[in-house]
Amino acid sequence: MTQGTGNAAGGNGSGGEGGGLCAGRVVIVTGAGRGLGRAHALAFAAEGARVVVNDLGVGLDGVPAADSPAAQVVEEIRALGGEAVAHGGDIATSDGAASLVATALDTFGRLDTLVNNAGFLRDRMLVNLDEDEWDAVMRVHLKGHFLPLKHAAAHWRAEAKAGRTPVARVVNTSSGAGLLGSVGQGNYSAAKAGIVGLTLVAAAEMGRYGVQVNAVAPAARTRMTEQTFADTMAAPEDGFDAMAPENVSPVVVWLGSAASDGVTGRVFEAEAGRITVMEGWRPGPTADKAARWTPSEAGEAARELLGRAETPGAVYGSQ
């Protein structure tokens, strides 16, 4: 693992001693104590980045645990020769998100990349889904993306206005559930769909300040998905663990580096050895009467258009 030394604030963050795709860059990864976040943090450090490892240290139910997984990941990175610092604040609060960005700036003097990854599940069928379970998932996933992005973007905008335009990157974490829906996960699917919308808006708003914003929709075996992928828990005979979270990290690291110049407002699905550019809503077949339809006419037109439209993907769990 290599150590980057960083550039002056506003530099491209692509140089530094020791080389690596992210040498010289400072990267925040939220929810980095386990699973995908831990894999991302280690992968960024392996490419020369200095990493702020954020994790509140909660269980799948959102209740804080006794240990500090963020500190453990920091020790892993340091043991391999990298630089990292732990942050245990709640990034779904404005104070916690502000302190996250401040930790990067105070510790390493700059911020180049934000990877929003924190989340947990409270799965229920809609008729059994309580309001607090809806609110909790929305808070951690959607608000937990918005607030770190807001505070990081404010810093980068100030840098750009001061004549130090950054080469900044944001990688948000959506899900196939947010793109297609998932039975029993109405709260999670809605939050992950909202993250896609947030990604598109942030990419459009922040491009002028040197900030690129993209999202990934990963599929991997983590604490949140271990039941889903229970049949793939055993080590594969060919040596390639298709569901390992480390398979997702390479595209995240690339999106978080200066090498991804010109790529913004996109969503990538990453699973096993496959990377897919996801294509979202866009106009399909259209009918224009140039006057107001009657309900019956509108229905006839809609059915004719549906006959020419592509069939949407199946909602996960509906087959």
Rank of each mutant, 00 (worst) to 15 (best):
A259F: 05
A193Q: 06
G35L: 07
T93P: 07
N7G: 12
F146K: 00
R266Q: 15
A309R: 00
S249I: 02
S174G: 13
T286W: 01
L306H: 08
R282I: 07
T264H: 01
H151A: 08
E271D: 08
G239K: 08
A217T: 02
T113W: 00
S318F: 02
D123K: 04
I28Q: 06
A102L: 14
R124L: 05
L147G: 07
G13M: 04
T173P: 00
L111A: 07
N128Y: 10
A235W: 10
V263A: 08
S260P: 00
A92D: 03
A154F: 09
K143E: 11
P283D: 04
G273W: 15
E304M: 03
S68R: 09
P236R: 14
V277F: 14
R164K: 12
A298M: 04
G88K: 03
S182T: 12
D123W: 02
V29A: 07
V251T: 10
T5L: 07
V29S: 05
E300S: 15
V267E: 01
A66G: 12
S296K: 14
K161S: 04
K150T: 07
K143F: 09
G57C: 11
T173K: 09
A43N: 06
A104H: 03
N12A: 13
T5W: 03
V127Q: 13
A301V: 08
